[in-house]
C-alpha cells in the first residue's frame, strides 16, 4: 500500500474539531479551533484512526491523499 497523508481543505473546514478528538496522535487544534495536521505519511497502524476522522468530518474537509 502506498503511503498516504492526511490533508484538510482549509476552505471547507469549519472548525468542528471532531478530527482532533478522533485522532489526537496526528491532529491538534490551533488557538482558533482549526486542525493542525502532521504532514508526514500516516503509519499503517494508525490508518484506521485516520479513516475514521475522514469519515466523521462534518464538513467533509479532511482527506487521505496518496503520495506527495
Amino acid at each position: 500500500m502506498r503511503p498516504e497523508r492526511l490533508v484538510v481543505d482549509p476552505t471547507a473546514c469549519t472548525a468542528h474539531g471532531m478530527c482532533a478528538e478522533l485522532f489526537p496522535e496526528w491532529i491538534q487544534l490551533d488557538d482558533w479551533g482549526y486542525p493542525m495536521i502532521d504532514s508526514g505519511d500516516v503509519p499503517p497502524d494508525l490508518r484506521d484512526h485516520a479513516e475514521r476522522a475522514v469519515k466523521m468530518c462534518p464538513a467533509l474537509a479532511l482527506k487521505l491523499r496518496r503520495g506527495s
Partner: peptide
C-alpha cells in the same frame, strides 16, 4: 446539539455525532 456545538469535555463531539 451537534450543529450548535454544545459539546463538553465529558461528551465530546464525536460521541454526540456517532
Amino acid at each position: 446539539v451537534d450543529v450548535a456545538r454544545l459539546s463538553s469535555q465529558r461528551t465530546p463531539r464525536f460521541v454526540v455525532d456517532a
